[in-house]
């Protein structure tokens, strides 16, 4: 059966249910959110329809600037750590036997699907005084007494790298599987060591993929919401935490919505950049 354009209205039938669901429960909610971001907030958690910019004007405060700056900095740090760790890993994984690949992929998927709550709980246990790794260090005599390693910035960073690492591998995997093996073979024949071939041939060949992956992981890390709360102090809270805090606990929906719209714009700009790089990569 060839693909053909729909001739009658009835041909559009199958589209009805998905289109209705996505419109009513995704497009309309997004529209509602954008509308609410311009509403006037009333005391006591209510808001009235209006068209004011005051919710956006609050972005200009020092506090908001700090949160935004920290969120972006944290997401960039996570993206860099993940790509540095995952790139050689995925490169080697893509060259392993199928059996080993499937085994690792099942493991990575299981970690990836873990709830942020669970990851936060697991790392807070690992970093705790009573059950943490410091007990191990005490046992082998490297430390005098166990101590808590969280809350703190490195705990947040570790937790988020843990969360994003499987995602990074899965994003890199297809590109590295497709990577032409003759490239490295040629480098090896010409006498370069495997490590040198990796840095001088593989990495330049994958430049666009690497940048695209950095952006994808960056967006993924921007969405992290519970880990900064569980493993960090209030100064480690990100924009996602602040949005929820405003929406649920401060009952300031218009301000929360304005921040969410802002976050969408940042994300969309980055996705566009990724698509642009992807296209350029294919053309090259």
């Amino acid at each position: 059966m060839k693909r053909e354009p729909p001739r009658t209205l009835a041909d559009y039938g199958p589209l009805l249910f998905p289109a209705a669901m996505l419109t009513v429960f995704f497009v309309v909610p997004s529209g509602t959110m954008i509308a609410v971001s311009f509403f006037q907030r009333q005391q006591g958690g209510f808001y009235t329809p209006a068209f004011v910019w005051s919710n956006y004007e609050r972005f200009l405060s020092v506090f908001f600037g700090n949160v935004l700056g920290f969120s972006l900095m944290l997401a960039i740090a996570v993206a860099i750590c993940c790509v540095v760790l995952a790139l050689p890993f995925t490169y080697l994984l893509a060259r392993m036997s199928r059996r080993a690949q499937v085994l690792w992929l099942v493991g990575l998927l299981s970690v990836l699907s873990l709830s942020e709550v669970i990851i936060g709980f697991a790392w807070s246990t690992l970093f705790s005084r009573t059950a943490g790794i410091t007990n191990l260090l005490v046992a082998i005599g490297l430390m005098d007494s166990p101590k808590a390693l969280y809350p703190g910035f490195s705990a947040v960073l570790t937790g988020m790298v843990y969360q994003a690492f499987p995602y990074t591998v899965l994003v890199l995997f297809p590109a590295l599987v497709r990577l032409d093996p003759t490239l490295t073979e040629a480098a090896r024949t010409l006498g370069s060591s495997p490590l040198r071939a990796f840095f001088n041939v593989v990495i330049p060949a994958l430049r666009n993929t690497i940048v695209a992956t950095l952006i994808m992981v960056f967006i993924f890390a921007l969405g992290s919401y519970l880990l900064p709360q569980i493993l960090g102090r209030p100064q480690h809270w990100t924009l996602s935490v602040l949005i929820t805090d405003q929406a649920i606990y401060q009952s300031n929906m218009p301000f929360a919505a304005a921040m969410a719209v802002f976050l969408v714009l940042v994300t969309l700009a980055l996705v566009t950049l990724t698509l642009f790089l992807g296209r350029k990569g294919e053309a090259a």
Binding site: F25, F26, G223
Partner: peptide
């Protein structure tokens, strides 16, 4: 998109 956005959209809806 970051999940908090979908979540907030649905909450307002």
């Amino acid at each position: 998109l970051p999940p908090v956005i979908t979540a907030l959209g649905l909450l307002t809806f």
